[in-house]
């Protein structure tokens, strides 16, 4: 009985564990005489294992709510979802406050700090459409704005200049955050599109600095943690454009 000729597909099937035992033995016997091919199949196996190890962590991540939402029609519109998020945030804050008052003597576990991109997107959605009062202190008083927000956050703050990217500073405001004061700077381009940069003191610097992207409804957010500060740039702009602006802001902040 002559075994069927060994073909390339058999080598893949061996590497992928898809051969039944008889055929596997034939292919392995064939490979034993051909070290080069054997090394090739061994390398493919390593590839599979490396891929599984490297990307396996994604399986452990909680599935983002927006994906669960996407699999569960009828979907609410993104604006509606954002409005609900705003309401939820407010209620959560009130409930937390009340709960603390009631059981003050009990040691409370630290409340989880709301995800930076989420709160930044909510703040963007609240203030960016503001026509008459988009900011508390306008760009005409930039020095005062920077000094005021620096004092309140306890860190030197300076609104990055995004003029080269077509966005001029409108001004800024102070916001309440989960862990204290937060600064929001607002920018606008010639077409009236607005960007906001949300800045807060963040958890002790974990040394995890990298750009991250999040999409909250129609608001895109690029955010990063740097030097103990969390930054989030939000806008209803194409992702690439927002990334370009985040790059400019990051470099400006690090000058």
């Amino acid at each position: 009985m002559t075994p069927a000729p060994i073909r390339e597909a058999d080598l893949h099937a061996l590497a992928d564990g898809r051969l039944e035992s008889l055929r596997r033995a034939e292919v392995e016997a064939w490979l034993a005489l051909r070290p080069e091919e054997q090394a090739r199949v061994a390398a493919w196996r390593v590839q599979n294992a490396t891929l599984a190890r490297a990307y396996g962590a994604v399986l452990e991540e909680p599935v983002p709510a927006r994906l669960l939402e996407a699999a569960r029609p009828p979907r609410r519109s993104s604006r509606w979802a954002l409005a609900a998020a705003v309401a939820g945030l407010g209620l959560g804050a009130v409930a937390g406050f009340v709960a603390r008052g009631v059981v003050e003597s009990q040691p409370q576990p630290p409340a989880p700090v709301a995800a930076l991109p989420h709160v930044a997107a909510v703040a963007h959605a609240v203030y960016a459409p503001e026509v008459r009062h988009p900011v508390e202190v306008g760009a005409d008083q930039e020095a005062h704005l920077a000094a005021w927000l620096s004092k309140r956050l306890g860190a030197t703050l300076r609104p990055p200049r995004l003029g080269e990217a077509g966005f001029d500073l409108v001004g800024g405001r102070l916001l309440p955050g989960d862990t204290g004061p937060v600064a929001q700077f607002m920018y606008q381009n010639a077409r009236g599109q607005r960007l906001t940069l949300y800045v807060r003191r963040d958890a002790p610097d974990s040394g995890q600095t990298a750009f991250r992207h999040a999409q909250e409804g129609s608001v895109g957010v690029f955010w990063w943690i740097d030097g103990g500060m969390g930054y989030a740039l939000s806008g209803e702009l194409p992702r690439d454009e927002l990334l370009r602006l985040a790059n400019v802001a990051y470099h400006q902040l690090n000058q």
Binding site: A54, A57, V58, E61, G207, Q208, T209, F211, D240, L243
Partner: peptide, 28 residues
Amino acid sequence: RLEYAPDEDLPELPVRAAQSDGLEMRDL
């Protein structure tokens, strides 16, 4: 412009995020 663009396009920052974004993942 949507063509594949790994995070290397982003500015070089001191250390990269942990969790699911392991070094091995970035290398791959």
